[in-house]
Write a protein that binds this DNA or RNA. Structure first.
Ligand SMILES: [Zn+2]
Ligand SMILES: [Zn+2]
Ligand SMILES: [Zn+2]
Ligand SMILES: [Zn+2]
Lengths: 167, 167
DNA sequence: CTCGTCATGTTATAGTATTACATATCCCGC
DNA sequence: GCGGGATATGTAATACTATAACATGACGAG
């Protein structure tokens, strides 16, 4: 049987099943398994880390196995690529079932904590629209935008200042 | 003698000389040459493309030659890395001479034309501040942000619709 | 002079992603 | 049932991006 994921991941996988079925997209066992690995991770996961884990149950898996699957998941908007990390996170936000249009990505912003490594996804309309407006003023029409901030998440900011040897 | 660059590039190089001298940073001939290649290009340039060109005049140049130089130029804020392209562009905006503080990068946004490949640098305060505000509302404090939009520049939007074989 | 620092040279390797071709599977119309 | 296209995956090789580790050279401070 396939790997077992957290309750939350299973729930998101079920949602993905529904979305793909509705679109006529084929969320195969391989794709579902890799999506599960991504969703189950606390932090963004690199392609070769996914490959290593996949190989534990699927001997002969190779880079194209992973990258093709990632392409599919990206097209379906089920995951995002975090450029600054060359890694992938599950989408937990905008995967509302929309009328089919080939690519289902949505505008998002990512907050990357440089201490704990976690990444939070935001979908803030103001950010998107201000950028679009400013670009338009420069005569530029945006089709997609990468917005990734690095800093400290609330947990790590509040945390007991993990005394950094300051002797 | 070193390669010859456009008048505009030479002007920016002279500005870089002044900035580095003011900071006590050492803009060596190698660093100046690579900065010139980057500034002179119409589009972002990859590290290995720079390496190939550098080898025409400097036999024995190797990846570290390039990457160390890029690190220096990034620290000085003389170039930026465009994450979506894994490539580098010259900074033509915020290189004002500021009090020394190790790293001189500034907040910027990039508009990448998917047709002509050119990249425009913006420094819009609204974009920066809206993102900072929204992140703060999520309890996140930003130290740096990557903002890169892909789309069509004004020239390519206006252009005569380069007939894409639509038979 | 000699030591430390900075800049660069040199070799090797790690990490990320794609190309090209082969195979399997499934659905569909005949 | 069979041929043919579309989709999904297997397999091997390679391209592209980046860093590690150690060596050498230049130069100023003391
Ligand atoms: Zn999302
Ligand atoms: Zn954190
Ligand atoms: Zn700049
Ligand atoms: Zn253009």
């Amino acid at each position: 049987m396939a790997a077992e994921f957290s309750r939350r991941t299973e729930s998101l996988l079920n949602r993905a099943d529904a979305i793909c079925e509705h679109r006529g997209a084929n969320l195969t066992e391989l794709r579902r398994h890799i999506l599960g690995m991504i969703l189950d991770a606390a932090s963004p996961t690199g392609a070769y880390e996914l490959l290593d884990r996949l190989r534990q149950t699927r001997r002969g898996a190779a880079p194209p196995t992973i990258y093709r699957t990632l392409d599919f998941l990206l097209e379906q908007g089920l995951i995002h690529r975090v450029e600054r990390l060359s890694a992938f996170v599950g989408c937990v936000a905008g995967c509302t079932v929309d009328p089919d249009g080939e690519s289902h990505t949505h505008a998002a912003q990512f907050l990357i904590c440089r201490k704990c490594g976690r990444v939070a996804e935001m979908q803030d309309h103001d950010v998107t629209s201000v950028l679009a407006r400013v670009a338009k003023e420069a005569g530029f029409s945006i089709s997609t935008a990468t917005i990734e901030a690095e800093g400290l998440c609330s947990t790590c900011r509040t945390a007991p200042a993990t005394r950094t040897r300051s002797n």
